[in-house]
Amino acid sequence: MNQKRDRVSIINDILLLVRSKEGEAGPTHIMYKANLSHQMLSDYMAEMLAKGFMVENVDRKKKRTYTITDKGHAFIRDYQTIRKFFDSYGLS
């Protein structure tokens, strides 16, 4: 990937990653696969949780995982439209 990714692309990449892991993934997996720093991952996850794209699950061993929601699936579905809109109007 030569071009710098914008925020929307990163959100889409994270959602695609989680979806490819049957809708649930841990933070370390997301961080490495999405090529993000710990701080960036925290910021993006906070935003995605706030927007309802994912939900956080904590098990008895306090292990955290993230599950994609219907809103997250809808974002992936609409991403191509959003991308076209951004590109044609020079947004992001």
């Binding site: 925020r7 929307v8 992001s92």
Partner: peptide, 11 residues
């Protein structure tokens, strides 16, 4: 509507 989903300031 897109700005509400993406929180992009430019949008």
């Amino acid at each position: 509507r897109v700005s509400a989903i993406t929180s992009e300031r430019s949008v």
